[in-house]
C-alpha cells in the first residue's frame, strides 16, 4: 500500500514537474517577421508593415505602436469599397493563440507620422508595439524595422 502511495506521489511529482517545465519553457512571446518601413520622400507619413506571430497560449491584442523617431504612430487599415479607397483607424488588432496577422500594402499598416530625422534606405528604426492579453496585462516589445525602398 505504502509502495503504491509512493508510486502515485512520484508520478504526481513527475507530472507536476513536467507541467512546470512545459509552462515555464513555453515560448511565451510574440515574434515579428518582415518588419519594414517603405520609404516615401518628404515629411509626409510613412507606412510600416510586418507579420506578427502570437506564440503564446492565449489571444493577445496589438493595441498601439510608438517610436522615438516618429511623433506618433497609428494602426490603420486601407479599405476599398465600391472602387473608393479610404483609411480606417483600428482600435487594436487581436491575434488568437498560435495565429499570425499581417500588416501588408493595401491592407493594415502602421501610419507613422512626423519623422524627426530624415530616414535612409537600410536604416533600422526601433518600434515598440504594445500588447494586452485577456487580463488587460500590458506588455511592450520593441522591434527593429528596416527602411526599404518604395519601388521593388
Amino acid at each position: 500500500m505504502q509502495r503504491i502511495t509512493l508510486s502515485i506521489l512520484a508520478i504526481l511529482l513527475l507530472a507536476g514537474g513536467l507541467a512546470w517545465v512545459w509552462l515555464v519553457d513555453a515560448p511565451e512571446t510574440v515574434s515579428i517577421d518582415q518588419a519594414r518601413i517603405r520609404l516615401l520622400p518628404g515629411d509626409g507619413p510613412q507606412a510600416g508593415y510586418f507579420v506578427l506571430q502570437n506564440n503564446t497560449r492565449q489571444a493577445v491584442r496589438l493595441q498601439s505602436a510608438d517610436s522615438p523617431l516618429f511623433n506618433r504612430i497609428m494602426l490603420h487599415q486601407t479599405r476599398i469599397r465600391d472602387g473608393q479607397s479610404q483609411m480606417d483607424h483600428l482600435q487594436g488588432v487581436e491575434i488568437t493563440a498560435g495565429d499570425s496577422i499581417e500588416f501588408a500594402p493595401g491592407g493594415m499598416h502602421l501610419m507613422m507620422v512626423g519623422a524627426n530625422q530624415p530616414l535612409e534606405i537600410g536604416d533600422l528604426v526601433p518600434v515598440t508595439l504594445e500588447f494586452s492579453d485577456k487580463d488587460n496585462q500590458a506588455r511592450q516589445l520593441t522591434f527593429e524595422f528596416i527602411v526599404v525602398p518604395i519601388t521593388p
Binding site: 517603405r38 516615401l40 507606412a47 486601407t78 479607397s85 500594402p105 493595401g106 518604395i150 519601388t151 521593388p152
Partner: peptide, 17 residues
C-alpha cells in the same frame, strides 16, 4: 494624395514596375 502612405504608393509602385 501624398499624405497617403499605403495604397497610393502601392498603386504607383505597381504602375512604375
Amino acid at each position: 494624395f501624398t499624405y497617403c502612405p499605403d495604397i497610393c504608393p502601392t498603386t504607383l509602385a505597381q504602375l512604375a514596375a
